[in-house]
Write a protein that binds this DNA or RNA. Sequence first.
DNA 1: TGGAATTAAATAGCAAGCTATACACATGAG
DNA 2: CTCATGTGTATAGCTTGCTATTTAATTCCA
Lengths: 144, 144
Amino acid sequence: MSYVRETSAGYLTNWAARLFARAIERRLAGGNSGPMPVFFALQDGGAMTQKALAQLAAVEQPTMANTLSRMERDGLVLRTPDPNDRRSARVSLTPLGRERAKAAFVSALEVNGIATDALEPEERELFYGMMRRIIAALERDAAV
Amino acid sequence: MSYVRETSAGYLTNWAARLFARAIERRLAGGNSGPMPVFFALQDGGAMTQKALAQLAAVEQPTMANTLSRMERDGLVLRTPDPNDRRSARVSLTPLGRERAKAAFVSALEVNGIATDALEPEERELFYGMMRRIIAALERDAAV
DNA sequence: TGGAATTAAATAGCAAGCTATACACATGAG
DNA sequence: CTCATGTGTATAGCTTGCTATTTAATTCCA
């Protein structure tokens, strides 16, 4: 690694993020990592608004709209019109979606395990904390 | 943040990576973050092969091919045919490219500064080290 | 030397992220 | 009650990433 790569927080983070996504996708055989936050949010049978899902996943609304469209196309998710607000729909997992959610959960745990195994046990909470502080700082910056 | 978001290394890393990219792009006014590794590799006037650039950036060859095509389209980069190997071309920055590279360097430093300011000074090297270990672990996994 | 294997780059096609904008419905103020 | 404003989704259009495949040139070996 060059000096820039070794000591740029952004460079390292972007690189690691791509490796995380690839490691998960490799385990999902055809599945992708985009639906993961939806799986986590809805795995216990709940239903949520697209807007709420976008907030949970920390992505913009159009990103979530497209992800849900692909999931709907693939039979993973159901959009039920909200009777109280005809603009809105409640999103829930289909049986196939719940099945895939379980598999995604297993893969995510495995990949996170590979990553955290690279850290000393006492470093792990520190790593999460550092990440959360960096995220908070960058979100403050974005809000300006 | 939910429990999953707070303690999933992959989730946190992906989230932070997107914030890094957005923070840089916000500062580049129309510019994007994809060319950044090319800027860093070529900023001092050197020329490199597409393959070498892809390795430096840690992206696949077609990803770099497309990035370079956009940069060429935008007048940032020049592809000079290699006289010794007609399959290959030497890539270098145009004057405009070098100008943009300087701006990108400033932005990257600023954004990295925002991130590292969220860490205690004595935590920073530790953070880079943790990231490098996680990257190494995930690359080992990918190589299996 | 001539065909096989390797290598550099390009292309096709998809996912997931973004911004900007459009559309349809809901709501609140007068 | 109507019209302006606000809100939930959808769409358009772009970048960046990936895998799989193709094309063209080089190299190696029999």
